[in-house]
Design a protein around this nucleic acid. Sequence first.
RNA 1: UGCGAGGUAGAGCAGAGGUAGCUCGUCGGGCUCAUAACCCGAAGGUCAGAGGUUCGAAUCCUCUCCUCGCUACCA
Length: 695
Amino acid sequence: MKHFNRYLVTAALPYANGPVHIGHLAGCYLPADIYVRYLRSKKTDVKFVCGTDEHGVPITIKAMQENVNPQDIVDKYHKIIKESFDAMGISFDIFSRTSNQVHHETAADFFLKMYKDGLFEEKESEQYFDEIKQVFLADRYIIGTCPNCGNDKAYGDQCERCGTSLSPEELINPRSALSDAVPVKKKTKHWYMPLQNYEPWLKEYIIEGHKEWKNNVYGQCKSWLDSGLHSRAMTRDSNWGIKVPLKDAEGKVLYVWFDAPIGYISATKELTDQWADYWCKEDTRLVHFIGKDNIVFHCIIFPAMLKAHGGFVVPDNVPANEFLNIEGEKVSTSRNWAVWVHDYIKDFPDQQDILRYVLCATAPETKDNDFTWKDFQDRNNNELVANLGNFVNRTMVLMHKLCGGKVPVMHAGVKDAADDAIFTMLQEAKTKISDSIENYRFRDALNEVMNVAREGNRYLQEKQPWILAKTPELQAQNQEVIDNCLHVCLQLTANLAIFINPFLPFTAKKICHMLKVVEKMLEWENAGSMKLVSVGYSLRPPELLFKKVEDDQVKAQVEKLHAGLQQSAAAQAAAAPVVAPPVKEAKAEIQYDDFAKLDLRVGTITAAEKVAKADKLLKLTVDLGTETRTVVSGIAMHFKPEDIVGKQVTLVANLAPRKMKGIESQGMILMAEDKDGRLVFVNPDDAVAPGSGVS
RNA sequence: UGCGAGGUAGAGCAGAGGUAGCUCGUCGGGCUCAUAACCCGAAGGUCAGAGGUUCGAAUCCUCUCCUCGCUACCA
């Protein structure tokens, strides 16, 4: 086993076109932070670097859409992202950004060195170009009609309605997503990196050299290497990014995936003059924490770049996590289905450790996982409050009641097997926790810490010092046993602080405060010691480490999630130009009397549920003010029951009742349907009293 | 389509040929120092499905189904 004298830990550079959500934390930043905090507590030489990734096409697009400069976008999100991480206790040594001067120089130099060594191929190709906006268009930014299903909003790479993968050539009536211009082909030159040249080395490095990598990472790498690598363009046509440092390269920038990982190097340079120790010395262990979408870049392309450039260490491990879903559905930033970190911090002030705990305990280490607010509540209330928090609280309260608020003496004479067992248990726990963290099994490690607290509760239950204190006539002989028990519990509490520190640093600090010990006690080498708090020392009054999460908080968060989804859908509907629906064949003219036969009323949906054994039907309860109607409506494919409760709708109130799936439907709800088959409620512009007539 | 990862008690996970295990929830009992918290016990699983190898399969092989990712210009 190779010995490392220093560590460099990186966490994926968040892309500066939006804030960070809890999936980001769980997948990458939190495990990285736990790992680093653990290493620091072992006094390991470690640097933890990160920063925002501020280049690439999506940022320029967003800027165009919002009519601002790309710089404005990245400034805004750099600030939000940095504040989120700070608040959550993600302890980067530096949180930089790829728009910094140092990075521009570093990345340009890196490219130039490879260029001078003749490691790029120059190739000309034809790319689509938007003549109005004067930019080249990535496939994704060409929109047209899908030849397969007729969707007129298909992208140049894929139709999202029928799932067919496409190329821009196949689109009928293609146009630029930016300007509506018809894209034209234009020749352009780019610099390619022949990745296939590094294949033998990559195989040796990964397939032979890193069999210990996680299954998902190793399997994915093997799959790429087995299927053969190709040349890949390392430059793009754009004005936003790092200018290609060559004479004939006007309007060209480095491909964002070329420049972004170099950001790790630039950030280290900004952090310390000794940066080269961390990047160039063979006894440095380089570890990249990322999400599973980034595997190819960190395991194949970046190592190939480092190898090609020469003089750098390559990653020793890339512990990529899978994805975290929210309430059973995939996170989607565009649909606004996410729990944003800056929102959490506002809604749960000073409770960062609950989120850290839940995200670590349910981290998607081996497969995609689900975050639910109910689970968040359960884990907090049943595990943090009832187990860890409760043990510390019991210990502190009993110490104050039975030992005069001071750390009691350990009386050798009445020391028993149970006391010794705690000592042994701590030694074993220390080994297990170290071992798990060092092998990137953070869930296991955290579970083991909680086991220590559980053992503490069990020990206390077995000793029952509160019973011993009830017989004053035996006071003299019982007090020694009580002293020993509380002495052990207090040492155990101090040990818990050390163990939990990498995971829940805010909590560890609180325990130190109560025990009146300095934070230096949290150093890992102290774990397992029974001499952490000194005999006779008077301690502070107990304060609760965690408080319960109430039902209404859970309810509010779930509602917020759904509200965000609807808001975003509404915003998008408003922003998107309304495509005229195909003109329905005009119906025969009617007289006013025909119209007057309709009894249209506004009602409010008070309940909604899926009809069993029917894909399309929802059973709705509609309040018409004077009465309540049950209506069966064929809208289940478009709306979730919980999303439409409270909505006002227009009801045909005098339609003859009709049974569907055994339920009598007493009316019909008016819906508008557009060309894509999307349904929208036809309802009053402003809320009106239920039962209001429509004419 | 191809490739990769995953599918194990209600939930989250562990187990990689030899009596299916852990945490939480549920149920029953005990305790009262503790945030109605703590402790003990119990119930709960045709290990996605089908076939095969083996004395023996959750574990190895084959096929099928489901979820997610990648499939190279979505950063």
